[in-house]
Design a protein around this nucleic acid. Structure first.
Length: 536
RNA sequence: GCCCUCGUAGCUCAGCGGAUAGAGCACCGGCCUCCGAAGCCGGUGGCGCAGGUUCGAGUCCUGCCGAGGGCGCCA
């Protein structure tokens, strides 16, 4: 039971005693940004004042009086501030409690709230067409999806990560044609794939002069490269789902048939249409072209039918680039037409990553391969760099700046904190200092502002994981990790764990503090998929 | 034309409707006889514009300006 929950309970009790009308869910404790505003704060008096016909400050005053008749554990003073905030100032004991909690729960148990209740969620991400190497933008969404998976998994969801392999249709044909043209030393068609990689593949290809065979060869080889590149970034999938397999299995036809039976389909101009306007789409969409080919949408609907109705995921999160915005409405409409509650489908549109000096486009070959970036700055730096900010934010990457910063990159800052922690452990071992069991250690010796700051950060972690999971926002974990690292560096500078003038008792308490920081940092870095090295 | 996302410090970005808007980079100035100076401490500098909602707006609503994306029998 955390201190904030204790306080909320005490506040509820006090309000009841005052005969004030309130809803327990309205009582929210927050940690003020400024230390002068105490350890915990609530705006409950501001929220309830009007309804109870009192001024906020009046209500706050009565609340405090009732509350302090029997002060809650660790509370030293309670003050009214500003328009009617109630600020609690606690003795450091609540933070020592928190330290014990972190250590007891450990790396696997701390900050692991059960929000998902085992709900089965599928996250589909990257899904870049296997027609060329993945670029930096793919990497951005890749680390996003992967980190989101880690976070939701920690928060009680049963997560499956999937890559939808677009290994069929016109683009594979075009890829095959481009490859064969290269092999014949002829010009690649204007709308073909011009990249250098096609030339390289053409040299390796010794199959027949057949577009489909060449396309399949190229697709498989490229996909293998994509997989290798993503693994360099610590991005892994539970499933690589082939679009061709869906078509071959007859699921596309079955899906269209199902839609026809439920009356959501009509024929016009020799094509088969989905009446998606019924479900809020701006216009109806073609499922089968007049030449008999199924459209991308038809395949996508079959795929989503498979996700929801065959494999039975409770929730599906599609991570897409903002350039796929146009297909969201029809996909959602189609899913609804299939009888699936559209709320179960979540589409996260990530803003595009652009570069100083030109945008990324695959066809022209004018893009920065993800492999290139990883080689330039290293996997961990690339990974953290991509998780630095929200995917709602379009990012501009200045490659020169990234390279220039490479020795001054945020990732080194956080990893250095972890290395320092490990270093303390090594020195302790050298000096023959062992950590005593925590219940034999006097944690009340931890009173330095730097020490308490670390503990406050650790108190925040469960809340950060919760927010990151619910808002699908891994960057919040990144922010926290950076802030914790900052706290630790400050502590490391000001508070020697083993040094002249540090008593053995204080050393013991600080060793446990360092251990708690290590646990928190490890959790955070693991959620981001960034390594936590013992040495740099 | 219509729809979506975004405009916060010179640059890259944080800021569940709350109190004096925060970091990093860059720039200026300090700190190593003790666990790693890839660090610590201090300084310079900002909410695109105009209304509205309310106890309170960077945050919500409307309009305008600006940037990116989308409106195919392409995928």
């Amino acid at each position: 039971m955390g201190t904030d929950a204790d306080l909320a309970e005490a506040i509820a009790g006090a309000l009841s005693g005052l005969a004030v009308s309130y809803d327990p869910a309205e009582i929210k404790l927050e940690r003020p940004q400024r230390l002068e505003h105490g350890d915990w704060s609530t705006n409950i008096a501001l929220v309830l004042a009007k309804r109870n016909d009192k001024s906020p400050r009046e209500l706050a005053e009565q609340l405090i009086e009732a509350l302090m008749a029997t002060p809650p554990r660790h509370v030293e003073t309670v003050e009214i501030a500003g328009p009617g905030f109630v600020n609690f100032r606690l003795d450091p004991g609540w933070l020592h409690d928190a330290l014990r909690e972190v250590v007891a729960a450990g790396e696997s148990g701390y900050a692991a709230p059960d929000l998902g209740h085992g709900e089965r969620v599928q996250i589909e991400f990257v899904s870049a067409n296997p027609t060329g190497p993945v670029h930096v933008g793919n990497g951005w969404f890749g680390t996003y999806g992967d980190a989101l998976g880690r976070i939701m998994s920690r928060a009680g969801w049963q997560v499956s990560r999937e890559y939808y392999v677009n290994d069929t249709g016109g683009q594979v044909r075009m890829l095959g044609e481009s490859l064969l043209a290269r092999r014949r030393r002829e010009a690649v068609p204007d709308d073909g794939y011009q990249g250098e990689y096609v030339r390289e593949l053409a040299e390796e290809y010794d199959g027949p002069e057949d577009v489909a065979a060449a396309g399949q060869f190229a697709t498989e080889r490229i996909l293998e490269n994509i997989r290798t590149t993503l693994e360099r970034l610590n991005i892994r999938f539970d499933e690589w789902y082939s679009q061709a397999s869906i078509e071959e299995s007859g699921q596309v036809g079955a899906t269209i048939q199902l839609l026809r039976e439920t009356g959501h389909v009509f024929d016009q101009d020799g094509a088969v249409w989905l009446r998606s306007t019924e479900f809020g789409d701006a216009r109806d969409r073609v499922l089968v072209k007049s030449n008999g080919d199924a459209t991308y949408l038809a395949g996508d609907l079959a795929y989503h039918r498979d996700k929801f109705l065959v494999r039975g995921f409770d929730r599906v999160i599609d991570v897409l680039g903002a350039d796929h915005h146009g297909q969201v409405a029809s996909l959602r409409a189609g899913v609804q037409a299939l009888g699936v509650d559209p709320d179960r489908l979540e589409v996260r549109l990530g803003q595009l990553v652009s570069l100083v000096g030109g945008r990324m486009s695959k066809r022209t070959g004018n893009f920065v391969p993800l492999d290139f970036l990883i080689t330039e700055v290293g996997p961990d730096a690339a990974r953290l760099l991509s998780l630095l900010s929200s995917i709602d934010q379009s990012t501009t990457l200045d490659l020169d700046a990234v390279k220039r910063q490479s020795m001054d990159n945020p990732v080194y800052y956080v990893q250095y904190a972890h290395a320092r922690i490990a270093s303390i452990g090594r020195v302790a071992t050298e000096r023959g200092i062992e950590r005593a069991p925590i219940d034999q250690v006097d944690l009340s010796l931890l009173v330095h502002p730097r020490e308490l700051e670390i503990l406050r950060m650790l108190v925040d972690l469960p809340r950060v994981v919760t927010e990151a999971a619910i808002e699908r926002a891994p960057y919040k974990v990144t922010n926290w990790v950076r802030a914790l690292a900052a706290s630790f560096h400050g502590f490391y500078h000001d508070c020697y764990v083993m040094g002249e003038g540090v008593s053995p008792e204080l050393t013991q308490a600080r060793l446990w503090l360092v251990e708690a920081a290590r646990i928190g940092l490890s959790i955070g870095l693991d959620l981001l998929g960034v390594n936590a090295p013992d040495e740099m």
